[in-house]
Amino acid sequence: MSIAFVVLALLTLAGAMAAVTLRNLVHCALALAVAFAGLALLFLQLDAQFVGFTQILVYVGAVAILVVFAILLTRGADDGKAGTVFSRTWLAGLGIAAAVFALLGWAVLRSVRGLAQAAGTPAVTVENIGQALMSRYVLPLEIVALLLTAALVGAVIVAMYEKEGAR
């Protein structure tokens, strides 16, 4: 329990909370970026340097920007309208989320005795990760490459299609 952990956890959770509750969609996206950055810092605190930087590069640099773009491209339909931003079934959703958290929290707290104590700092270099990716995890790597290519092509096709006569 270090102070850094508490601060980063609070930052992440506050960002996440703001991302799902704020009214303005762009503010939601920016709060999401804060949550992602906080998570990246948590990864760094867990000695996972490579994953932390990847998190910033992919999430803050790409996913947050994608979300922002999507928000701006779908504007005009339902913003500025008065009324709630929450769904009709928000009570059920909140209940389910609370139940899930209660279950997870109960499971964690129940097994807290059996949880491992901190081992020594693992000395993992980028070279280790590269070697592992190219030997032990080469099949998942190739599958992810295929998936990313398919997603790229798919996303372009989905977003490119226009109604007849729109051109």
Partner: peptide, 8 residues
């Protein structure tokens, strides 16, 4: 990673 943050 830092360069990507400037976009936001």
């Amino acid at each position: 990673a830092m360069g990507a943050s400037t976009e936001l």
